[in-house]
Design a binder for these strands. Structure first.
Lengths: 218, 218
DNA sequence: GCCAATACAATACAATCGTCTATACAGTTG
DNA sequence: CAACTGTATAGACGATTGTATTGTATTGGC
């Protein structure tokens, strides 16, 4: 992506920046929590937390919306990294599904603020914000779709509309994940188990439909 | 459920109310839209729209939060009514799934503000608000679960964990519905078709898993 | 007709918001 | 050294927020 002060001379005369984009992002993250969403953050509040004057915010972001989009992009990249790792750790013993959902739930429980944002704020906020969330979700769907195809080929099981299946799984897991965040610790495991079952249900469904479709075309 | 001035003398001397709870709710609904969520509404704004002084708002609601919960409850009841009708209209020709999702999508397209709220604001807002949404969703799941059981008995097909299946379908349809709201008219039908397929996928999955489970216990 | 109860309006308050202008500071460059 | 330049700050503006207080209009029962 591109940082805001796009035009930057090779040497930079003038006062050294006291604060970076990342510092502001960190400050914003510190303010966020289970009962505090990005859309309720004010510019002044973030600036206060970052220890800068309200106006200094503008040196790094055009407005709060741009900060929000930056947060979403970070969240998406972070989670894809995590899931990517989990994918590679998956063996023939531990299924990809189990491995990935485990990683997902672990990250949920780690109270990852970035993940919070990605899960729960896709439906409110500015258009730019919603589009950013949608983009990250579609990245996920794409990767998951590839996974499903690979998995089906490996196991020789059918696969009905991989893209659609990936979309269903992604959206379902993300909403369910969002509700997990509001649950007390002791109920989280229960819901986590439910999520895994739901995913298996969808996968079983796509395989069954594929089998029926194949039979019909015989 | 209960109006705010709970203590009401049997006889009521005094000025007649010029405005009702419902008027305020109507004003709030008029302000809402695709790019305006309940959580961004201010008390003054609603009062202005309703044509009353800011303070008069308190005669009917304790705060904006209570208004929001009232909206959610209305939305839930409304949609359940609609789906209930669709359920009864379903014949052997037109499946319950098709009939209900059709009714759902039709309501979506009708730009029903109440439905907007229910779909997209479950993850932000106050605890009371989130709990209200969660409650309405669980009502849905309950009814859908009964439907699934009836359907399975009728068709003689298996059914693996009806409650879980109902939950998966409900959550998936609701999130997908929320993304439909942000789509241009011409893409909505496409996504609507996808949703139906996803639901069929889950149902196929639950039946398959039930069959496997039955075979195992043989 | 009067009284008490009620509903609403008017005004005001402190707090917060985003943003504008002007200014002080810290480096680099000549 | 002085001049320039980009950074950060200070202060203020107008707007808006939720709410407390106070006042006024209207109604029904006596």
């Amino acid at each position: 992506m591109s940082s805001i002060p796009a035009k930057k001379s090779l040497v930079s005369p003038g006062r050294k920046p006291m604060i970076s984009r990342e510092d502001i992002i960190a400050a914003a993250l510190k303010l966020l929590g289970p009962s505090r969403s990005v859309s309720t953050l004010s510019l002044r509040e973030v600036a206060r937390e970052a220890g800068i004057a309200p106006n200094s915010f503008y040196r790094h972001f055009r407005d709060m919306d741009e900060l929000a989009v930056a947060l979403i992009d970070m969240a998406g990249e972070s989670l894809r990294q995590i899931i990517g790792d989990a994918r590679q750790r998956a063996t023939l013993e531990v299924s990809v599904v189990q491995s990935c959902t485990d990683a997902f739930m672990e990250q949920l429980r780690a109270d990852d603020r970035l993940l919070h944002i990605l899960l729960r704020e896709g439906t409110v906020g500015s258009d730019a914000f919603k589009r950013a969330v949608e983009r990250q979700l579609s990245f996920f769907e794409e990767e998951l779709g590839q996974d499903l195809i690979r998995l089906a080929a490996l196991k020789g099981s059918g696969l009905c509309q991989p893209a659609l299946t990936a979309k269903a799984i992604t959206r379902l897991v993300f909403t369910m994940g969002a509700t997990v965040l509001d649950l007390p610790r002791d109920k989280q495991d229960e819901l986590a188990a439910q999520i895994v079952k739901m995913v298996r249900m969808i996968i079983a469904g796509t395989q069954t439909l594929a089998a029926i479709g194949a039979k019909k075309t015989d």
